[in-house]
Amino acid sequence: MKVLLIRHGETTWNIEGRYQGQEDTPLSERGRKQGLLLAEALREIPIDLCISSPLQRSYQTCRFCADLHGLPVATDERLTEINHGSWEGVLAGDIAKRYPTEFALWHTQPEKVQMPDGGESLEDVRRRARAAFDEYAAKYEGKTVLVAAHDAVNKAIICDLLGLDMSHFWQIKQDNTCVNVLEYTGGTWRVVLLNSTQHLGFLFSGIEQAGL
């Protein structure tokens, strides 16, 4: 069983450095173009089914790919981005001023952060994403599944599948519309491809987004 795990295309909040979390932000014009380039790159790759976060930025990115394969897109709430609590909709610089201790901890020891005012921790994200992936592995043996999610979700599940705890979160990079290939065989997951962006015209990007 294979998972083609992708991140959504760019949004205007990505450009601004504004924390999105579970806010349902749309793709920017460049994000739509990125999604179409991704879809074209995956046109000849056999895909059996498509599953997406219900947030429109991931769903639309997945839809571009699914349309070229004549497939529907199922949604899974467990793939929704981390709930940033009261940080959602706020610029990274403003969060750093209002929550200096928590913001610094998020970028140095993210596994210790519980997002304020009802937000999630990375452990919360890891648990729900892992439950989803365990279900996919059990249900879709021999299939190739396209999964469209988000920066924090992708980082958390990749760390988990590699046996890394959430202290390694920032050691994984996920660019907009990147492709990761994960294989499940004999009870073991392995990473075959990580953060591929060749469909965008470069081997790797120098882009560092602030709203993460």
Rank of each mutant, 00 (worst) to 15 (best):
G163T: 03
S52I: 09
Q174R: 07
T197N: 12
A137Q: 10
A96F: 00
N176W: 13
I95C: 04
D134F: 08
R63W: 12
T101S: 12
L91R: 05
E102C: 07
K97T: 10
R30F: 15
I15A: 15
I157P: 06
G85A: 05
L42N: 09
L71E: 04
D48P: 04
H150D: 07
I95Y: 08
G118S: 06
A92Y: 08
R128A: 00
R126V: 05
G35S: 01
T197E: 08
D48L: 11
I172P: 00
A138N: 10
G119F: 05
L200G: 13
A66G: 06
M166K: 00
L122T: 01
A74I: 03
A41R: 10
Y140V: 09
F133N: 03
T101Q: 13
K97N: 08
E135S: 13
V113W: 02
I82N: 03
A137C: 13
A148R: 05
R126T: 12
Q109A: 14
P116M: 10
R130A: 13
G17I: 09
E208N: 12
G206C: 09
A39Y: 06
C50T: 12
D151S: 15
I15N: 06
C65S: 15
A156E: 05
G206A: 09
T75K: 01
S53F: 06
D151K: 08
P26F: 06
I95G: 04
P116K: 05
I51A: 09
E208R: 14
E77L: 11
L38F: 05
L36I: 14
E135W: 11
D76S: 10
Q60D: 14
L49N: 02
A39K: 06
A66F: 06
G186A: 12
Y19T: 14
L194R: 09
G206Y: 08
I158R: 02
S205Q: 10
C62E: 08
L4R: 05
L42A: 10
W189M: 01
E23R: 14
S196W: 08
